[in-house]
């Protein structure tokens, strides 16, 4: 079971900070995509690159550059470790700026 957002500090993070990040996107039929976030728009349609797919039957394969419309998305997830790094990076950045 993935962690709930309330359990994690997202302090100071904004959407642009996730660009380049590895996302795990849950779709229908237990399908999961893993890829680097290249772009997103205000409707939260995502463009992921170097996408790997895990189908409902467990079959894994590579798909390359994939666009994921918001309506198809059930959940967007980020590895805890990567999220921590993002938060830390942002914190340091802000500290230096101040």
């Amino acid at each position: 079971m993935s962690k709930d957002l309330s359990q994690v500090s997202m302090e100071g993070l904004k959407l642009p900070d996730f660009v380049g990040c590895t996302l795990y996107v849950n779709l229908h039929n237990n399908r999961i995509l893993k890829g680097s976030l290249m772009a997103l728009d205000a409707q939260l349609n995502l463009l992921l690159d170097h996408v790997q797919e895990r189908a409902g039957d467990g079959n894994r394969r590579t798909l390359g550059l994939v666009s994921v419309p918001r309506k198809t998305i059930q959940a967007i997830k980020v590895p805890q470790a990567e999220l921590n790094q993002l938060v830390q990076f942002k914190r340091n950045l802000l500290k230096n700026v101040v």
Partner: peptide
């Protein structure tokens, strides 16, 4: 269990 669900955060920010 190593993943954090950020869907709500993404939705709110978008």
């Amino acid at each position: 269990e190593d993943l954090v669900d950020v869907t709500q955060f993404f939705d709110d920010s978008a």
